[in-house]
């Protein structure tokens, strides 16, 4: 059982929670994730660590309300307990030796991209951040990114915030302008990461993508999170979540991500109805 210390809505569908989890906070590094259950008989879902405070013993998670579990999680408030909270899991994002990096985040993926950008910034790396959202109302962590980025590009699909366009448009501009990166790190929806990797391949820039697969245990036991990287089957939970973006079979990953879509839609509706009745 882990207590929620703070809860802040970042936009209508994205919430930030600070959770008391001293053991996790002690070890967590950007790129790693936790697995939680909101209640007995709840589902185990992975959420990437968005921040941590080793002194206070807290871990921050940022989640988008997409299914039954995130709906139930969002109905918990400061002071409430999260039934199970385990981590940190997966490998940390490798940042050692990087001098100049482009961090490309999309949507709620920015929540995961931010701690990576921050870590790079703190170790003296030049950070160019490109963050993209569908529309102005969905923007999160703008100020946070501004603080840790040497350059910040804002883009939105509809042009209501920053430049109209896609993160790949902004990244192409930077690359065309002659910016040379040791690495591009991209975190966001699978199609976005796929196209970021396609673009950087043209420019021959090493690219790391963070894969948020469906998981159960998160320790290598079930194999649900498997994906093909460079022709080999890997487990996102223990081999990742970061992989060489130019080697990932994104089409397969996108297909696998839809495994439970029907079930999720149904379960989410049920969860919503449940809360409606409670009210």
């Amino acid at each position: 059982m882990n207590r929620i210390i703070e809860k802040t809505p970042l936009n209508p569908t994205v919430t930030r929670m600070v959770v008391e989890a001293p053991l996790v906070a002690r070890k967590a590094e950007p790129g790693q994730f936790i697995i939680l259950r909101t209640h007995e008989d709840g589902e185990r879902i992975p959420l990437t660590v968005a921040d941590f405070d080793r002194e206070k013993g807290t871990v921050t998670i940022i989640f988008q309300i997409v299914g039954a579990t995130t709906e139930k999680l969002n109905h918990l408030n400061a002071g409430d307990m999260i039934h199970d909270f385990v981590g940190p899991l997966g490998r940390a994002t490798e940042t050692e030796g990087l001098k100049k990096v482009a961090v490309v985040g999309g949507g709620v993926g920015c929540a995961i991209a931010w701690p990576v950008a921050k870590k790079l910034h703190d170790q003296g790396c030049e950070v160019h951040s490109i963050i993209g959202f569908r529309t102005r109302d969905l923007v999160i962590l703008e100020d946070e990114f501004a603080r840790v980025s040497d350059q910040l590009r804002r883009v939105s699909d509809d042009g209501s915030w920053g430049d109209k366009g896609l993160v790949t448009d902004a990244l192409r501009e930077l690359l065309e302008a002659g910016e040379r990166y040791d690495e591009v790190i991209t975190i966001g929806p699978l199609p976005m990461m796929k196209f970021v990797c396609k673009l950087t391949r043209e420019y021959d820039v090493k690219t790391v993508a963070s894969m948020n697969s469906i998981m159960i245990d998160g320790t290598g036991m079930c194999g649900c999170c498997r994906l093909t990287v460079g022709g080999k089957v890997r487990f996102a939970c223990v081999d990742g979540p970061d992989f060489d973006g130019h080697q990932i079979d994104f089409d397969e990953a996108m297909a696998r991500a839809t495994s439970y879509r029907e079930f999720e839609r149904h379960a989410h509706e049920e969860a919503c109805n449940l809360f409606r009745e409670v009210r």
Partner: peptide, 22 residues
């Protein structure tokens, strides 16, 4: 994997009404 299937059914009780695991 049998591990995944069995974990869903046994540990996560996916077949029991009220369980959130599919």
């Amino acid at each position: 994997s049998a591990n995944e299937f069995l974990t869903r059914v046994n540990l996560m009780r996916a077949s029991v009404p009220g369980s959130d695991t599919p």
